[in-house]
Design a protein around this nucleic acid. Structure first.
Length: 562
RNA sequence: UGGCCCAUGGUGUAAUGGUAACACACCGGUUUUUGGUGCCGUUAUUCUAGGUUCGAGUCCUAGUGGGCCAACCA
């Protein structure tokens, strides 16, 4: 409703320009094209957010296309996981597409290119081809097979398809320019022979098309108007256009729209690695429990950790789009999940590092049910009951026998409030033989009950502590996570392996006590454990044994000052 | 015979030739029955040097710095 002028990112500007130059808004179409060879991670959410976001902005369809041209690395498992992750993020694709569905069309077009003298079968080894390619500063030389006749090429290519040659014996190459300053234009390979079973086409094909030949033509087949990808594909654009124009000439009657590729910088996150290969190593070497380990930057890991789709989408939105190399501070991601959960997560009390607190003037057998607000940020969240009794657990860090005036918590002779309950005063401690505190004794002011409206209850005390009633508390496992790497950019060190920067303390398993209302928490439920952070019920959780993942801690100025 | 891309506070992103803005982070204050939240405030001669212009972060040239490209991967 507000008329605030939203600035356009450079991709939106390109689209607006195309629209202004006569492109119909109805022609707008985007795609997200993952290769199903691994799990999606936070880096992918940027690409997803950009293309699906544009789809939402312009009310244009967005295809989910699996770029499945390499049967050696691709599996159905990944297809399923990718679909689940994108759906979970809340995006809807117009069509579920597969490059492998276009293998026949691609083959026919390749034959056409051969007939036009634009492609040839090369019969050299890959080493020979690599050598002849030259280097970025040195021109390549032509293959001795470059001038085969059309008939010979056609014959050879068909035999490649029919499985009459061995792997590596021949390839189909585009005939472009071996002296191009762009390495990709030096007669790029279009097809290789591969006797591998494909997860969708089985053993139908003995040759598989390469990325450059496949990707742009898949865009073209789907009539994608803007094919958006990351910066490292910039050099591919020239080839993308070459292939596209070659095919467009003969197919424009049926496929009138010629797609264009544009590139943006990918997302990097501090203290995080994003390479699929490296993430795979963490899984394979057992550093993490799997792709969905809550410490992993995968979508499934973040989901299990307790991140919400809304927080991730918001994150991607504020990260923006540009062509600059960038490193986003992981603190921004954490801010986004806190921001969301602060408004949506119900509060609860849990004690992670318990010490016993006895209220000596509270009757031995007395119990009370106290009322606790579920979420002060959400009026509709109502409240819940919390049992109170003479013996409680509080956090060990919330007590010091003697403390300076900066310590707002419990100490001997000082008063604090027990959240939703009474004001108490520290009286004495009980210690074991080693001198560590086993019990804290305090007295309470019976007139100071929260919400009672009495003068005593309105007294200002400096600190408020969370607690659980020992008699009523439930045991729960809490898994607290720290960042996986101790270095800001673990994989940017040329002389060091990223594994050297692993944080040995990235997982801490805690036996905690939680208030009884949490007994009914279901897998995926998210809570704010007051004064501690946000926690989500893990998949491993059962009615007998609750398991919580710490999503992120609360902002903690006190901890910083320590 | 190398080519291409990029450069704005600590980190990101805006400013579309006309007062450098927003978010995070940081630091300080304030409110608070969460040391949370909210609210207020501090933090930049836009990589350098020339040029065009009444006026340049924006356009041009050169330099500097960073990134990408030499898989039968995507």
């Amino acid at each position: 409703m507000s008329e605030e002028k939203k600035s356009l990112n450079f991709l939106e500007q390109i689209i607006e320009e195309d629209l202004a130059n006569g492109m119909s808004k109805k022609a707008l179409r985007f795609r997200f094209p993952p290769e199903p060879n691994g799990y999606l991670h936070i880096g992918h959410t940027k690409a997803i957010g950009i293309s699906f976001g544009l789809g939402e902005r312009y009310n244009a369809p967005v295809n989910l296309r699996f770029d499945d041209t390499n049967p050696v690395k691709e599996e159905q498992e990944y297809v399923d996981a990718i679909k689940e992750d994108i759906s979970w993020l809340g995006y809807k694709w117009a069509n579920e597409c597969y490059s492998s569905d276009y293998f026949k069309q691609l083959y026919d077009w390749a034959v056409m290119l051969i007939k036009n003298g634009m492609a040839y079968v090369d019969s050299q080894t890959s080493e020979e081809i690599a050598t002849q390619k030259g280097t970025p500063t040195q021109a390549g030389v032509n293959s001795p097979f470059r001038d085969r006749t059309v008939e010979e090429n056609l014959d050879l290519f068909k035999k490649m398809k029919d499985g009459l040659f061995k792997e590596g014996e021949h390839v189909l190459r585009a005939k472009i320019d071996m002296s191009s300053p762009n390495m990709l234009m030096r007669d790029p390979i279009m097809y290789r022979i591969l006797f591998k079973e494909h997860h969708r086409t089985g053993n139908d094909w003995n040759i598989y098309p390469m990325y450059d030949w496949t990707h742009g033509e898949s865009d073209y087949i789907e009539q994608i108007s803007h094919s958006l990808c990351s910066l490292e594909f910039k050099p591919h654009r020239e080839l993308y256009n070459w292939f596209r124009d070659a095919v467009y000439e003969i197919s424009k009657a049926d496929l009138p729209l010629a797609p264009k590729q544009r590139e943006f910088s990918r997302l990097n996150l501090s203290y995080t690695i994003m390479s699929k290969r490296k993430l795979m190593r963490l899984v394979d070497e057992g550093i993490v429990s799997g792709w969905d380990d809550p410490r992993m930057p995968t979508i499934s890991g973040l989901r299990r950790r307790g991140y919400t789709p809304a927080s991730i989408r918001s994150f991607v939105k504020t990260v923006g789009v540009s062509k600059r190399e960038n490193v986003i501070d992981v603190a921004l991601l954490e801010f986004k999940i806190r921001e969301d959960l602060n408004k949506t997560a119900n509060r609860a009390m849990a004690v992670l590092n318990p010490v016993k607190l006895v209220i000596t003037n509270y009757p031995e057998d007395q119990e009370e049910i106290l009322l606790a607000e579920n979420n002060p940020e959400d009026e509709s969240a109502s409240s819940r009951n919390v049992p109170f009794s003479r013996e409680l657990y509080i956090e060990r860090e919330d007590f010091k026998e003697e403390a300076n005036r900066k310590f707002f918590r419990l100490s001997l002779g000082k008063e604090v409030r027990l959240k939703n309950a009474y004001i108490i005063k520290g009286e004495s401690v009980v210690k074991d033989n080693e001198g560590s505190i086993t019990e804290i004794h305090c007295t309470y002011d019976p007139l100071s009950k929260s919400g009672s409206g009495t003068e005593e209850s309105k007294r200002k005390v400096k600190g408020t502590l969370h607690w659980v009633s020992i008699k009523h508390a439930k045991k729960a496992e809490v898994r607290a996570y720290d960042r996986l790497f101790s270095d800001e950019a673990p994989d940017s060190h040329k002389d060091k392996d990223f594994m050297e920067f692993l944080n040995p303390n990235s997982l801490e398993i805690i036996e905690a006590y939680v208030e009884p209302s949490l007994q009914n928490a279901k897998v995926g439920d998210r809570f704010q454990f007051q004064r501690l952070g946000y926690f989500a019920v893990d998949n491993d959780s059962t009615a007998e044994k609750l398991v919580f993942n710490k999503t992120v801690g609360l902002r903690d100025i006190w901890a910083k000052k320590q």
